[in-house]
């Protein structure tokens, strides 16, 4: 495959090794986070939900960044691999955004007192989720690859720009959700666990995007084969 971002010939086993490393890193980081962090002054042990909620949100943001880059590069260079990369990242972003919302809900119930509220951070995140669903639905409904790539790049750029709004929402508007933490507001006892978990989530993110990208490439190969077969059959009929 010329111009291939990830060679299609890499065996699935290599991805499996990356996957095992990523999940093992997650186990290690979570165990350390769970065992080494003292209960928080306000939240008690509930602070530990931070180690899954925050890394899930961060990696979802990164996935949307990949969607943005892939979409822009596609419109610029018109090479299929960028479109497939954006599509792969979008599906992973959808999974991680949904996970982030669900984890936030589980965290919000005992700390804020509600599963859900119409706070700008929560609302913009839900909108982002629906936009991503729209992006993927659009892809699944357009059969012609060139058109699909062009249209979904336009929709993908719009959706992924919304990430900026989600990220800045806690600063622009008065919200129930707290503003971003920084090293000065998080005690070192929690910072280490958070960083390690974020790193493990990053590995999981890379694993997911690579795997999904490979699936996207193979799907295109299957599509191309089917087209070639139809063409061959058509010629046979004419002869």
């Amino acid at each position: 495959m010329p111009g291939s971002f990830v060679p299609a010939v890499v065996s699935r086993r290599r991805y499996q090794i990356l996957g095992i490393i990523a999940l093992a890193a997650l186990v290690g980081a979570e165990l350390l986070g769970l065992s080494a962090s003292p209960p928080d002054r306000d939240m008690g042990h509930l602070q530990k939900i931070m180690y899954v909620h925050v890394p899930a949100a961060w990696s979802a943001f990164l996935a949307f960044f990949v969607v943005f880059i892939g979409s822009v590069l596609y419109l610029w260079k018109r090479e299929e691999r960028y479109d497939l990369l954006a599509a792969a990242a979008a599906e992973v972003a959808l999974v991680l955004t949904a996970l982030t919302l669900a984890l936030g809900s589980i965290w919000g119930r005992p700390t804020w007192g509600v599963w859900w509220t119409w706070d700008p951070r929560l609302t913009t995140t839900a909108i982002l989720l629906v936009m991503t669903v729209g992006y993927l639905a659009l892809r699944s409904f357009v059969d012609e690859p060139d058109r699909r790539a062009r249209w979904s790049a336009a929709v993908g750029i719009l959706a992924s720009l919304n990430v900026l709004v989600v990220y800045k929402s806690v600063q622009w508007w008065r919200t129930l959700h707290q503003v971003q933490s920084s090293p000065s507001t998080v005690d070192p006892a929690y910072a280490l666990g958070l960083r390690l978990n974020a790193l493990a989530f990053l590995l999981v993110l890379v694993y997911f995007i690579l795997l999904r990208y490979r699936a996207a490439r193979l799907e295109r190969l299957v599509e191309a084969q089917a087209e070639a077969r139809e063409l061959a059959q058509g010629e046979e009929l004419h002869v």
């Binding site: 209960p39 306000d42 931070m50 007192g113 509600v114 509220t117």
Partner: peptide
């Protein structure tokens, strides 16, 4: 009709001698 607690972005362990449970 609905009371929600707004948590700050600070995460600190309790000072020596106090237990988190005592606080809340």
């Amino acid at each position: 009709t609905n009371l929600m607690v707004k948590h700050s972005n600070e995460y600190r362990p309790p000072a020596p001698g106090e237990r988190p449970q005592d606080l809340y």
